[in-house]
Amino acid sequence: MAKIIVVTSGKGGVGKTTTSAAISSGIAMRGHKTVVIDFDIGLRNLDIIMNCERRVVYDFVNVINGEANLRQALIKDKRAENLYILPASQTRDKDALTVEGVERILNELAADGFEYIICDSPAGIEHGAFMAMYFADLAIVVANPEVSSVRDSDRILGILQSKSRRAEKGERVEECLLLTRYNPERVAKGEMLGVTDVEEILATKLLGVIPESETVLKASNQGIPVIHDTESPAGQAYSDAVSRLLGEEVEHRFMSVEQKGLFQRLFRRSA
């Protein structure tokens, strides 16, 4: 049975697509047959982050409408062996996604042997975001340590708990928090919400903390999901998050200012 994971946030631009690309690549590299679906109809972007923008022929909506079959629309990733991308359509209206249509595609993917289905949600709480989360078994709520993002995350958690199919069946979507663009220096200075603050406010299990990192932009410039950059803290943090998703216990990293000398630390604290 396939596990359906939605990457969602409410607020835009917090790192959902970056996360979907990294997590799906990471899971696939661990040997699981994985597909990542772009639900951002009209604003397709997962393709360019994953460097397959010139290979898109058919898209998600074409498959739902029966204009193409899955095999024609799925794009095989050039880096990760077991990874496929289902791009969003660029032009059609977002209501093209229907509950029945999406369900049929998810079932087909599961029947095709996909173990993990990652759904990259659009921002907002409208139709597209709803479609991306409706069938989820697990939700990765992406948040930045910033008031509007945290507040929106809580709204999304509320929607997951009341409007998802699992909620309708009296079950629960498993939820976890991924805090991205984290800057431990600013947290230490009291300028940014800390991870424990956000965990406490949202009362949600922490999947990981992804530090703010220049390597994320470099990765997207080249269309290489940042998880492939094993030297970068962001890449390593995503890799840890993948391990946790797959059930391993991995200690959290990149949450505090790098260990400096004792004097430097004392100096920083009293400053």
């Binding site: 910033e146 008031v147 945290v150 507040r151 809580d154 709204r155 509320g158 947290v187 200075k189 009291g190 300028e191 940014m192 919400l193 800390g194 603050d197 406010i201 949202l202 004392l266 604290r269 009293s270």
Partner: peptide, 29 residues
């Protein structure tokens, strides 16, 4: 510690953010 004293003397903006969020989130829930 004395360091904490200096840090809490003036409330930092992150603490203000946390307080505000706790109130609004509780209300919205």
């Amino acid at each position: 510690s004395i360091f904490d004293y200096f840090r809490t003397a003036k409330k930092d903006t992150a603490s203000i953010a946390k307080e505000r969020l706790q109130i609004i989130v509780a209300h919205e829930r």
